[in-house]
Amino acid sequence: MNIEKFILASITMDTSKVKVSGGTPLFSCSSKEEMEAVAASLEAILDGIAHEISKDLYIIVKH
């Protein structure tokens, strides 16, 4: 079995919007700038793609 698409991490300023299930890490940030920086770093480290879901939520996805 080969898993091709999955969420590697969630980055948010509002943890009430994210329900972590299945071991996906959740990164909580205090500002939009911090959230963007964390998303960019994780995107490179995890070899994934950052997607802005809302103004205070990013996910890193493996395609």
Rank of each mutant, 00 (worst) to 15 (best):
E4D: 09
S28Q: 14
E52D: 04
S41P: 00
F6R: 10
A40Y: 03
F6K: 02
A44M: 06
K17N: 05
D14A: 12
A9W: 00
E36C: 12
S16P: 04
I11L: 09
E43A: 15
K55D: 12
S28Y: 12
I59G: 03
M1C: 07
F6V: 03
E43M: 14
S54H: 01
K19A: 05
L46Q: 07
T24R: 05
S54F: 01
I3R: 02
K19Q: 05
E52G: 01
E36G: 07
I53M: 11
K55N: 11
V20C: 09
D47H: 04
L42S: 11
F27I: 03
Y58F: 15
Y58N: 13
A39K: 03
K17C: 08
M13D: 10
S41F: 02
C29V: 10
T15P: 10
E36Q: 09
E4P: 03
M35S: 13
A37H: 05
K62E: 00
T24S: 13
K19G: 08
M1V: 07
P25D: 09
A37C: 07
F6D: 00
S10E: 04
I3G: 01
H63N: 12
I3S: 01
C29H: 05
S41M: 07
M35L: 14
E34Y: 07
L57F: 03
A39L: 06
L46N: 14
K19I: 15
N2K: 05
D14I: 09
K62W: 01
L42V: 09
S21E: 13
S41D: 13
K17H: 06
I59S: 01
V18P: 09
V38K: 10
I60L: 14
F27K: 00
S21G: 10
I53E: 07
S16W: 05
I49S: 06
S31I: 08
G22A: 05
I11Y: 00
V38A: 11
F6N: 00
V61L: 11
T15K: 06
G22P: 12
L26Q: 15
T12D: 10
A37K: 08
K62P: 11
V18W: 10
L26M: 09
S10G: 15
S30H: 13
I53F: 02
L57I: 06
I7Y: 03
S41N: 09
I7G: 07
L46G: 13
S10N: 11
A9C: 07
S28V: 15
A9G: 02
S41L: 04
A9T: 01
M13T: 12
V38C: 12
D56I: 11
D56C: 11
A9N: 00
L8M: 15
M13G: 15
A50E: 10
I11D: 00
A50F: 04
I45N: 05
L57Q: 04
G48V: 09
A50S: 15
V18M: 04
L57W: 02
F27M: 00
E34P: 14
N2A: 07
T15W: 07
H63F: 04
